[in-house]
């Protein structure tokens, strides 16, 4: 955890507003809550704003969402700064890599993945690579411990990584042909490596 501030003005877009499609979607989210409680929709709306803006949340978007929900700007800023998954500074265009560094992943080699990030992307987390396409950060548990170590890029997880397979994942994003999300070894989702080990006699 560290102090989180909105990005400096020179990195901020001047304006932000939802696309027509997202504005419609926002209306539906707000309608889920009783009148006068529309502020409850703050997190989904901020998240959609972040997605629309290429993975990070500009200050103008925080204001825009606060205005839609008729709440004070500071209240929206409180939410945006509280949750670390709202990125307040620009991230890589092609991929923002969130490497899980919590115990299971750490024991299974998260450090090696971070080394790859440091080498290929930037020495420091939350910094954009020279070509502007990549950034990375270390995050806490993302809930795929069985398939440790893993990373999260946009909405997909890439699991059972080794430095080599992780580089392939990054290559995929670099050349616009991402590899298939999920385990990067021979296994189905969280099932045992190398096929079933129990209940082998049960017929489908």
């Amino acid at each position: 955890m560290s102090v989180r501030r909105v990005a400096p003005p020179e990195l901020q877009p001047k304006e932000f507003s939802f696309t027509a499609e997202n504005a419609d979607w926002a209306k539906k989210q707000i309608a889920k809550y009783p009148p006068g409680r529309q502020q409850s929709a703050i997190i989904p709306l901020l998240w959609r704003a972040q997605e629309q803006n290429g993975g990070w949340l500009p200050e103008a978007a925080i204001r825009h969402v606060a205005d839609i929900l008729e709440m004070a700007h500071i209240r929206a800023l409180e939410v945006a700064t509280f949750y670390t998954m709202f990125l307040l500074e620009p991230c890589g265009k092609k991929a923002h890599v969130q490497v899980c560094g919590t115990t299971p992943c750490m024991l299974r080699g998260a450090h090696d993945l971070i080394e790859v990030c440091k080498r290929r992307i930037h020495e420091e987390p939350h910094h954009i690579s020279a070509d502007g396409n990549f950034s990375w950060e270390e995050v806490e548990c993302l809930g795929a411990c069985v398939n440790a170590p893993m990373v999260l890029i946009w909405n997909d997880t890439y699991e059972d990584l080794t430095p080599a397979s992780f580089e392939k994942v990054l290559d995929g994003f670099a050349n616009g042909q991402p590899v298939k999300p999920g385990p990067q070894i021979d296994r189905q989702f969280g099932a045992p490596v190398g096929g079933p080990t129990t209940l082998k006699t049960v017929k489908a």
Partner: peptide, 14 residues
């Protein structure tokens, strides 16, 4: 006039 707020969290709340 809700102008004051607490940004960040935990030790970094401001």
């Amino acid at each position: 006039v809700p102008e004051l707020g607490a940004i960040g969290r935990g030790e970094d709340m401001e």
